[in-house]
Design a protein around this nucleic acid. Structure first.
Length: 497
RNA sequence: CUCCCCAUCGUCUAGCCUGGUCUAGGACACCGCCCUUUCACGGCGGCGACACGGGUUCAAAUCCCGUUGGGGAGGCCA
């Protein structure tokens, strides 16, 4: 690593679907690194052992590859600062935590989750600041050691100043001031021995020689903790640049409830990676010449972090669609588009999956187009009046669809067999015969009352497209209010836990 | 509730740093007209914003303060 070389990273957490927000962060990091002749590192932050999955990690890597954002160092390609998967760096974190413990910059906390919960409830009731009350700070070193030796469960917290003032320098936000009193003693090592984000991120960014931390604004509040850790370790912190958060139509942080957020969805829905990238690049930034259609290369050449605007951009799918259309019109001959369609879905492989489902349902070959159209579509036209389940109101059906989506999100293997088992379970729970239960799903997923067999078809459609269409069906049924949603979540956990 | 961030058309944004050239420019969406066997594309036009209130100044979208609004964070999630 030569002096002055730019090194940036994207550090996704492999929990769930590959998120467009990850792509957004990756894009700006990548473009900045490329434009400055630097290196772009991919690091997997899988310290949450309960939620991280290998499957999700693979999906993220695959999605970034599809988008055309290759990394110079990462878990798959290796590099001089590996391993690039945090779950494989436990030893490194443990050493650093021990160093902090020894130097008195951190301490063991033996408080139970129950006590912490009560404490928070009390603070909330009193309208106080929410945060750890530092009870265990006063546990003497000897006693702390003794309790740890006797295998009492503990976490490690960093010491944060009780008073004073912290100044953050951010490339986009300038100076940000924060009182230490508004920051509590953050847990840096969990009781399972894994570090939390704060510790792992600081240690890794330093060890991996990261020069610029470009990430979402949601992290701005925790920079003081990070700075304090850099100070404790005696390291020079990197430069920080906090990007605005992508937003839903109602300006809240982009979420899968209100928008398709999975990169897989956009791929399945027939968007070009270069168009999606271009669109994300347009969120908060514009080419100096004002041109809205630009290549990744052009973005790399022209991106200046200081030019990014701070207002949270709404992810407007309509404009994405328009942009994608420009790519189709301007960058493809008929011949090239034909090839692109084949690459997408109009191919032997796809037909091979559908033919067995359609076979007995075709009276003539010409029935094919109408019968299978839903497999080659983004949204399908649904008549809300056809969205009915015997014995259930529209509102109840919306709730059932929502719980189905949650179940599908948990499904490890989106294939016919598992789907069948799942739907049998659902039908039973809601006390509806399977046949009656599945009926509205045909409508929601295909726009038709009669279609190819449901579970096979869902498998072909894929998890993301299936969930998107169910979500749209919920909207068609009148949507689910926030209050109703919370109630639903409770019912859901009561029903399935 | 506490802290932090943000604030130009419905949306993405230009302009703001270096006040005057801004009766605020472009794009998406919407509406109308033209092109056209339909639609789409394309062309032309329309609708449409400096959140509000104070300052500073000869002059403020641009600088300062306050208010309001929005967002984020406050997890043994990241």
């Amino acid at each position: 690593m030569s002096e002055g070389e730019v090194r940036v990273r994207v550090a996704p957490s492999p929990t769930g679907d590959p998120h467009v927000g990850t792509a957004y962060q990756a894009l700006f990091n990548y473009a900045f690194a490329r434009g400055r002749g630097g290196k772009f590192v991919l690091r997997i932050e899988d310290t949450d052992r309960a939620r991280s999955t290998k499957q999700s990690e693979e999906a993220i890597l695959e999605s970034l590859r599809w988008l055309g954002l290759p990394w110079d160092e990462g878990p798959d390609v290796g590099g001089p600062h590996g391993p690039y998967r945090q779950s494989e760096r436990s030893e490194i974190y443990r050493e650093h935590v021990n160093g902090l413990l020894k130097a008195g910059h951190a301490y063991r906390c033996f408080c139970t989750v129950e006590r912490l919960g009560e404490m928070r409830a009390e603070q909330r009731a009193k309208g106080e600041m929410l945060g750890y009350d530092r009870l265990c700070r006063s546990v003497a070193a000897q006693e702390s050691q003794k309790r740890a030796n006797s295998r009492e469960s503990f976490v490690v917290r960093m010491k944060v100043p009780v008073e004073g003032h912290c100044v953050i320098h951010d490339i986009l936000h300038g100076e940000v001031h924060k009182d230490w009193a508004s920051v509590d003693d953050q847990i840096i090592l969990k009781s399972d021995g894994f570090p939390t984000y704060h510790l792992a991120n600081v240690v890794d960014d330093h060890l991996m020689g990261i020069t610029h931390v470009i990430r979402g604004e949601e992290w701005l509040n925790s920079v003081p903790k990070h700075l304090k850790l850099y100070e404790y370790f005696g390291w020079t912190p990197p430069l920080f640049c906090h990007l605005p958060l992508l937003r839903n139509e109602d300006k809240s942080k982009l979420s899968k409830r209100k928008n398709p957020t999975s990169i897989h969805y956009y791929r399945r829905a027939g968007y070009f990676p270069q168009a999606l990238l271009n669109f994300l690049g347009m969120m908060g930034w514009l080419m100096p010449n004002g041109e809205e259609k630009f290549t990744l290369e052009e973005m790399c050449e022209n991106l200046k972090l200081e030019d990014i605007s701070l207002g949270g951009p709404v992810f407007d799918r309509q404009k994405l669609k328009w942009l994608n259309a420009r790519y189709i019109r301007e960058d493809y001959t008929d011949e090239a588009l034909h090839e692109e369609l084949e690459r997408w879905a109009i191919n032997r492989e796809m037909n091979g999956r559908i033919v067995p489902l359609a076979h007995m349902r075709l009276q003539t070959l010409a029935d094919w187009g109408y019968l299978t159209a839903a497999f080659f579509a983004d949204e399908v036209p649904v008549n809300p009046e056809d969205l009915l389940m015997k014995g259930k109101t529209a509102e109840e059906l919306a709730g059932i669809f929502q719980m189905t989506i949650w179940k599908l999100e948990e499904l490890q293997d989106f294939s016919k067999g598992f789907l069948e088992i799942l739907f049998q379970e659902l039908a039973e729970k809601f006390e509806v015969k399977l046949k009656q239960f599945t009926m509205p799903y045909y409508v929601a997923l295909s726009g038709r009352k009669a279609w190819t067999p449901l579970f096979d078809s869902m498998e072909v459609l894929g998890s993301d497209m299936t969930r998107m269409r169910l979500r749209r069906a919920i909207d068609l049924l009148g949507g689910i209010s926030g209050k109703k949603l919370r109630k639903l979540e409770n019912e859901y956990s009561a029903m399935f836990d």
